[in-house]
């Protein structure tokens, strides 16, 4: 697993995710990275990566909407000017 710190360099995070608990893809997977978004500017997130944690919070067992909300809130909060993602290239069953 790799820790990627995405600085909030744009007004959007700019990733699309699929998956979550009780789906075929139990942990969220990055399916799109939008050009010009913070994630794209960061340059370290890639399509296909699985998101294990956001700011140290595990996504295991979270349904899609819950995981998406957690990521959205991490990006929205003014408490910090970055979001930490723990990602892996492998679709591990955790």
């Amino acid at each position: 697993a790799t820790l990627v710190r995405v600085a909030k360099t744009a007004s959007t995070l700019g990733i699309a995710i699929e998956g979550g608990a009780n789906t075929r893809q139990p942990l969220p997977r990055i399916v799109t990275i939008q050009r010009g978004g913070s994630a794209h500017n960061c340059g370290q997130l890639k399509v296909g990566q699985i998101i294990l944690e956001v700011n140290g919070v595990s996504l295991r067992g979270r349904e899609h909407r819950d995981a998406a909300r957690l990521i959205a809130e991490a990006f929205k909060t003014k408490d910090r000017d970055y979001v930490d993602f723990l990602v892996t290239e492998f679709n591990v069953a955790l």
Binding site: I17, E18, R24, H64, A68, A72
Partner: peptide, 16 residues
């Protein structure tokens, strides 16, 4: 006819 579900449903996609 009895249908057996072998796979979990697909997930929706959310743009963030």
């Amino acid at each position: 006819v009895r249908e057996k579900r072998l796979t979990l449903p697909p997930s929706e996609i959310t743009m963030l």
